[in-house]
Design a protein around this nucleic acid. Structure first.
Lengths: 333, 333
DNA sequence: TCCTCCTACGTCAACGTTGACGTAACCGAC
DNA sequence: GTCGGTTACGTCAACGTTGACGTAGGAGGA
């Protein structure tokens, strides 16, 4: 900046004025400064600027998701990023691996970089690190899972209601033995979806068969094992409700391996690419991922811009997408 | 920091020493400072630190890909992020939409934040903005597509060789009418893959039928239209080579809609989730995405740490994954 | 003519941190 | 007892930028 000032024969303050488009600089001077900046390849230093400015904005937000390579997470990131771009804000992104310690470290890193706010998919278990950061005044929005502490916005989907709806649809087709395959029980979403499953059973007048419930399936491999065990029961389920993406894929593989994909009904929570191209197409509960991302971004930017209204828990509705696998009636034994 | 110093009754310099774990602070003082920092919830300001420090590192790198919600891009991001984390570095991520102007703006934003380096998937067309940034001294690694200017590392895959291999495999099965469906021709990868297609035809002693070549298919919908047109030819192809992800999906849909998925061979470039679950499984050229990401991260961190060896063009091999669709022999007319 | 107001600049200090350097206290060796 | 060396601090200025404030010169009005 000093070099630019020297070359344009003005003070650094005038360069600052020109760069920031502030009034108080004559047309000729503006031109000289612009030219000097161009020839020297000058780029303002946002860090120094933020240090001095009164608002102390870094024009950067943090995004901490579980795994940025997961389609759900990356679609969410993209939606947040789009909104951020419109506000001239860049995104610092990290994967927490659902590991509290790692999430805490990343949070400290973000804090050290003075991000204006963070959008977080909270790791399972206690949220002390999140709460602490929140209490230091960092604007924060949780996505997918709500906070266990107060005063913080969050955006989730209709986990319970949509799960109930899925189970009710299966029951309406005549299924009485509907299995539940779920992700880690520490996750709030898993609990909600399981609750929805129970509600669905109850509402359909079905009794819960404990042995048809398999949880803590961390990935497709675990889901395969669980699905295999279920099908080997004396009285196997005639329908499966898989409460997560990878679990659905694992269950599908087993059905397919046994040639049962047209005989046993399957509804999964979370859509995935090509679900419509399989035979049969996979009926899923589809979350409105861009909608969730948009809402989260809206909330965080509102807070950053000083919105002090009471915390919001936004619920973005999911929809049942019927493709065939969830419309299979129970076959005669 | 001043508050911490005051509370611990030391100078700010001593606080700095304690925070950075530098020698020259007594055990008792260290404890006092730590306690004070904890009670005040002190977080060092990395921006200010970077401003003063001699090395001027921001411990942040930039990643500019085409679309962070694309599975290829997000897997790449994840691989880079993992490596970055090991170096205590955070990632500023952005989607350029293959738009030069947008990519340029994002690059300026990154530059203003003084990122230590950038990993870029160059937008099609001229790369003036990239070159300019590179010449300002920013360490840079291009992924997926090479630079059109010198002095810059890049990491790509075996586009040409693997495409040739795919075509040769089809030819070996007896196919003589092999169609090519490709992405935008401005993309270097598309050109390479097309060249590989031509080489494969030549090597198998087949002559190119121009009407079997369809390019500039920007997305699955365009691919569907093109595939439909190909199948409606008087002498339709007996095998398709689809040179990109979404193009493969579009072609698949058409084959499936016409019930030809077991009669017409298909090999796609780029793997995608569930390609193995379809019927038949889709034979693809699979890029080693984590390998590409790792290599790119390695290169950028080496450059950031002062490696001045000549620029490298790393080529990470792709592999043909046989799943059925690419092993269909031409059916009798 | 003189005063006021505005415009177009410049000067200075401060943001939070650390490199360079200073200094007081203590240790061991001669 | 003095000297060189080490340890444990502190002081000061600077990183690149901008807010607060100062000033010179010209326009405009009474």
């Amino acid at each position: 900046m000093r070099d630019v000032a020297a070359l344009a024969k003005v003070s650094t303050k005038t360069v600052s004025r020109v760069i920031n488009g502030l009034p108080g600089a004559g047309a000729e001077v503006v031109e000289r400064v612009r030219a000097a900046a161009r020839t020297l390849g000058y780029r303002p230093n946002l860090a120094a600027s933020g240090l001095r400015r009164s608002d102390k904005r870094s024009a950067t937000i943090g995004v901490l998701f579980e795994d940025l390579s997961n389609p759900f997470d990356s679609a969410l990131l993209r939606a947040v990023e789009d909104r951020a771009r419109h506000n001239g804000v860049l995104v610092l992104a990290g994967s927490s691996e659902d590991d509290r310690a790692l999430q805490g470290e990343l949070l400290v890193s973000l804090s050290a970089r003075r991000v204006d706010g963070v959008v977080v998919m909270a790791a399972g278990g206690h949220q002390d690190a999140l709460q602490q950061e929140r209490e230091r005044g960092t604007p924060m929005v949780l996505v997918d899972r709500p906070p266990t502490f107060g005063g913080t916005d969050c955006v989730t989907t209709t986990n319970r209601e949509s799960s109930r709806e899925a189970v009710l649809q299966l029951a309406a087709l005549g299924h009485r033995d509907i299995a539940y395959l779920g992700d880690r029980r520490t996750l709030w979403t898993s609990q909600e979806r399981y609750t929805g499953y129970l509600e669905g059973l109850a509402q359909a007048g079905l009794t819960l068969r404990e042995e048809l419930v398999r949880t803590d399936l961390h990935g497709a491999d675990f889901a395969e094992t669980a699905a295999t065990a279920l099908l080997d029961l004396d009285r196997p389920p005639t329908a499966l409700f898989t409460a997560q993406n990878l679990v659905t894929v694992g269950a599908m593989r087993v059905l397919r391996a046994r040639g049962l994909q047209r005989r046993i009904a399957l509804i999964g929570f979370d859509d995935f690419p090509l679900a419509d191209m399989l035979e049969p197409g996979i009926t899923v509960v589809r979350q409105d991922v861009p909608g969730i991302g948009r809402k989260a971004a809206e909330l965080i930017f509102a807070r950053i811009n000083g919105d002090t209204s009471p915390p919001v828990h936004a619920v973005v509705p999911a929809a049942l997408v019927r493709r065939g696998s969830g419309e299979i009636a129970p076959s005669a034994p």
